[in-house]
Amino acid sequence: MSKELNLTLKVWRQRNNKAKGQFVTIQANNIADDMSFLEMLDVVNEDLTRKGEDPIYFDHDCREGICGMCSLVINGRPHGPKEGTTTCQLHMRSFHDGQTIVIEPWRAAAFPVLKDLAVDRTAFDRIQQAGGYVNVNTGGVPDANTIPIPKRIADEAFESATCIGCGACVAACKNASAMLFVSAKVSQFALLPQGQTERYERAQAMVDQMDKEGFGSCTNTGACEAECPVGIKLTNIARLNREYLNAKIFRQEDVHS
């Protein structure tokens, strides 16, 4: 049955990208424990608005854990203490009465803060633009059942493809590395027959762009995997390493021809 919590929030407030930010302490009282974390923030924001104070800006959209828009480092953990969930699917029953909750934005040079808790994640888009696709035009493609794909392979590609692009991997990594994100996309295409023709160019192009964006390197701590809300596995990173090194060392000629 529903309980009520009184909480102390320590929230990062920053007016815009240029401004200096700081933590602000806000009291959140009478929070029902069946609220989602974002609904708790909604309630806080409604209070702030009534008082004429600027509401806390945070990114969110679908509120069902799939769009990848919500973020927040909650008490030092991306998407909060519960494993395998996004912040929008985190419920207040994961907290206890009287708790202090520190809420920070994703921290990474490649993810500059836009306002309060919202960051700019377009670096992810640019990485995808560098090669996260198969070069096919609309129309003129073969029948969908022309190439059978073993279920095991299709399932594995799907697992990699479920990445929601939220950036929790970057936020969790002590190096702010985007390897889990990049490897998920590279893996999806490396596994599927449709991705084969551009397999090696893709790995190189996406890694190059990742480096350009200023993400750190992977030191295999596994924090990304532990914090990923959709369970993208570290084996993807191994595969990316394989794809990239294979491309660079053994297939250089094919790539530059």
Partner: peptide, 22 residues
């Protein structure tokens, strides 16, 4: 029918049977 063909060509990992077909 064209949509499914298009999506598969793009690398959309639809569910498959053990025989590898959709």
């Amino acid at each position: 029918v064209n949509i499914i063909d298009q999506c598969v060509a793009q690398g959309v990992p639809f569910a498959r049977e053990y025989g590898g077909l959709l």
